[in-house]
Simulated scan of single mutants.
Amino acid sequence: MASAQVTGTTSERSHTPACTGPHSRARDWAEIQERMLVPLYQAVYERLEVGPATSLLGFGCRSGLALLLAAERGAQVAGTESDTELRELAQGRRLQVQEDPRTAQSVARSAHSLVTVFEQLQTTPSPGRLVAAAARRTLTGGQLVLASWGPPERCESAAVLEVAQRQAGRTPGRDPFALGAPGRLEGLLAAAGLRPAGGGRVTCPFAYPDLDSAVRGMLSTGLFDPAVAAAGSALVVKELEEALHPFVRPDASVRMVNVFRYVVGERVN
């Protein structure tokens, strides 16, 4: 079975200038950022008792850490990821990950007892279409989990993410907090024909060994891509460093406490 060990360490990269190329961003996600969401993944798996009886499909699974954690519980796992670099990293972890959520029937199973959308809702231009596609891959009687950032007032990273909105120019990216309001995720489930079946909030501290790692990690989320395209990487990195400065601790590490929320939907027919 593949191990959930994260590739590399942040300290190995902490003295390299921040870079925003696709390959660098994918590596930075795998080596720095994805571990920040482990409390979310584990809370969902605990609540839904993920184990050997679970067939799990991760929509937009990125480099696959959430799938590895489910596999360690005995689940059968597969994923979809449209980003080539992230998909190759997941495949390098011996995970079965295909290219496009709309072609999820090409994975080992055409439908699964549990489908998760942990990260992709934050950046997709069409959340409703994405959730509808995920619902089609959920077995009758199965469950679909959607996750998003929580309320901005509960997320210390909100001030940092504001850089992405301010510098995105005329083509702003999606507001990462747009789906965090009460009822928004539930509405997506209902529109896809699923019955909301509870949810929760999970505290996910974002902790980095130094400022450079924090910049790399935040850039790897994809939320800053429109800002980089509009304003250039140098300016975005500069403003990110300024926004992160209040969260730098005496030992030079960076820590921000954030809340994520998730909802569970059941497919009844």
Rank of each mutant, 00 (worst) to 15 (best):
G173Y: 04
G198Y: 03
Q105P: 05
R87Q: 02
A252N: 13
A227T: 04
S55N: 08
S220V: 05
Q167C: 15
V263P: 14
S82V: 14
G150K: 07
P127C: 11
A197S: 15
A252G: 10
V38T: 08
N269P: 06
W29R: 12
G232M: 01
G60M: 12
A190P: 00
H245E: 04
R184Y: 01
G128N: 02
R47K: 07
Q122G: 08
L194F: 11
G128C: 03
L189N: 03
L244Y: 01
F59M: 15
E119V: 05
Q105E: 14
R249I: 08
L121P: 01
R184P: 00
R201S: 15
A111W: 02
V202S: 14
G150W: 06
R137V: 14
S106K: 08
L189K: 01
R129P: 05
L95Y: 02
S82L: 15
M36Q: 08
C204K: 04
G217C: 04
P17L: 07
T80Q: 12
S106A: 11
S148M: 09
L188T: 03
T171S: 10
Y45N: 01
A159M: 10
R174C: 04
Q96L: 10
G217P: 06
E99Y: 04
A158E: 05
Q98E: 14
G92F: 12
G74F: 03
G180H: 04
V264C: 05
P52M: 10
V248W: 05
L114T: 03
S14T: 09
V131M: 07
E239S: 04
E85N: 15
P17I: 03
T124E: 03
P125R: 02
G60K: 09
L69K: 06
G173A: 09
E46A: 12
V248T: 12
L37E: 09
S213K: 01
G198H: 02
Y208S: 07
A135R: 03
S233M: 05
A158N: 07
Q76S: 15
G79T: 11
L121M: 01
H15M: 13
R184W: 00
T20H: 14
F177H: 07
R154E: 15
Q120V: 09
R201Q: 15
A43V: 00
G222H: 05
A147Q: 00
A207C: 13
T9E: 08
K238G: 12
E81W: 11
I32C: 11
W149A: 11
A70G: 07
Q42P: 00
P101S: 06
F206K: 11
V115L: 10
S11E: 13
Y262L: 06
G169H: 01
L69S: 03
Q122E: 14
S55Y: 10
A234C: 01
L161S: 09
E99I: 05
R13T: 14
A168S: 13
L37H: 11
D83S: 15
P176D: 09
F247N: 04
A90W: 06
A43N: 07
A168H: 01
A2H: 07
A108Y: 00
A227I: 02
K238I: 01
A178F: 02
T9Y: 08
T138W: 10
A66E: 13
E99C: 11
S233G: 10
A230H: 00
P196I: 03
G60W: 12
R255M: 15
D175H: 06
R13M: 15
A181D: 06
A135E: 10
T203H: 12
G193S: 04
Y41F: 14
L185Y: 01
R129V: 09
